[in-house]
Amino acid sequence: MYFGSDNTGPVLPQVMQALNDANTGYTGSYGADPIMDRVRDKVREIFEAPEAAVYLVATGTAANVLALSCYCPPTHTIFCAPKAHIHVDECNGPEFYTNGAKLTLVGDQDKITPDTLRTAVEGEGNRGVHGPQRGPLSITQATEMGQIYTLSEIAALTEVTKSFGIPVHMDGARFANALVALNASPADMTWRAGVDVLSFGGTKNGCMGVEAVVMFNPDKAWEFELRRKRGAHLFSKHRYLSAQMDAYLTDDLWLTTARQANANMARLADGLRKIDSVSFRFDPQVNMAFVDMPRAVLQRLAAQGAVFHADTPDLSSGAAEDQITTRLVSDWSMSEDNIDRFLTIAAG
């Protein structure tokens, strides 16, 4: 009953097989392998972006910080939500890779609104040489709270950025989960809506460790290559990144696993709604939910081996009826039996 993170699940059998298949003979290094040629073609076809520059790295943090560094000089600032991964979970990686650009937090929620964005952008870049200049907007799809930006919401944000001439980065660690939930096309959720560069996630959705950076305008492609090398994220045996992404994109596997992960959360959420003492912070839209649950329920679940992330580090002390916010995340591999067992224990 592992609901702590979709990072904890196994690798897709198709990805493991692709790695094994790639592990023969000799081939070009540093991305000059024929598998990467297929990956590049597949990504361009999926996103309907024949001129897009496509690069692979091993982690989501690398994808985010390297992409952002191409669009944000050290004299500028990156606009993001307070709960964005680049602010909360990347150990000042964006600041490091941009050589000191700051982050400007927009609003107080996980989703940014056009009004809060405009206010934040207007508050920067107006002090001449004394203040940070206006840099890119970074949005997360799906957000760290499991919410989704609709296509119209993305377009409304990019309308603001266009008025200021600043680029847009999308952190898509759970891009596939958001895409299938919206039943949208990859192009409509990115470049058609005004997104300039995407961190396209694979690891959370069944890969061993691979993310793609997709630059819809290839003007920054060479700079990205230089930054990736300088930042020590260019793999010499690159074929093992290529093989993962190739398998992930074959026969819509990436969409199938995202739908399964979302369906697993929907099954869990349907069961939790039947428990009077449990309430949701947001209606789950993807494979993540934030729920308020009594301490006694969480203690019972933990005692039976359930894994989850509770806001309170110590469940052992405190009133049994205390409501504790808990993050639950499902992945593609989760069995219905484990979901139902979790629900049975939670119901008491």
Rank of each mutant, 00 (worst) to 15 (best):
A181H: 03
P313V: 05
V39H: 01
Y97L: 14
A156K: 12
P294A: 14
N183H: 01
E122F: 07
T104M: 12
L66F: 11
V88C: 13
I112S: 08
S163W: 04
T75R: 14
L343W: 02
E336R: 15
R327A: 04
D340T: 11
V195G: 09
T190K: 04
V210R: 04
L315Y: 10
G125Y: 03
P132Q: 03
G271F: 02
R228D: 06
L105A: 08
T27W: 14
V213K: 10
V106R: 09
S335E: 09
M208N: 04
Q109L: 11
M189S: 04
R174D: 01
D311G: 05
A81R: 12
H76W: 10
P13L: 07
A266Y: 05
N20C: 06
S279V: 06
T190L: 01
T61Y: 03
G318R: 13
N7C: 00
N287P: 02
E90Q: 09
A184S: 12
G25W: 08
E144N: 15
L315K: 13
P73V: 12
A53G: 08
F280L: 01
I166T: 04
P73K: 15
V210A: 06
A221W: 10
G107I: 11
G209W: 09
R300M: 02
K237F: 02
L249V: 06
A156D: 13
F164Y: 15
G318A: 11
S138W: 00
A212Y: 06
V307G: 00
Q323R: 15
R118P: 07
Q285L: 06
V213E: 07
D270S: 13
D314V: 11
G93N: 03
M170Y: 10
S69M: 09
E95L: 10
W222T: 08
M265Y: 03
E122L: 11
D108A: 15
E122R: 15
I46D: 11
L198P: 04
G201V: 07
R267W: 00
L19R: 15
E153N: 13
G202T: 00
H76D: 14
L249A: 07
G206N: 03
T203N: 04
N23Q: 06
D292F: 14
D108V: 15
N338S: 09
L234F: 13
M245E: 00
H87D: 12
A319V: 08
V39M: 00
S138F: 00
N217V: 08
G123R: 13
H169S: 11
M1P: 00
G231M: 14
N126Q: 03
L298R: 12
P186N: 06
R267Y: 00
E321F: 02
L68S: 08
P34S: 15
D108K: 15
A302R: 15
P34N: 14
D340R: 12
V129D: 14
V214N: 07
Q14R: 14
S5H: 03
G165L: 02
F79V: 01
F308G: 01
G348A: 02
R174F: 01
I148V: 05
K274S: 10
M16N: 13
G31D: 00
Q285F: 00
F342S: 02
Q260F: 00
P13Q: 08
M265N: 06
H309V: 07
L19Q: 14
V57D: 07
A289P: 01
A52P: 03
D115I: 14
F79P: 01
I35K: 14
F175T: 10
A173D: 02
T59Y: 07
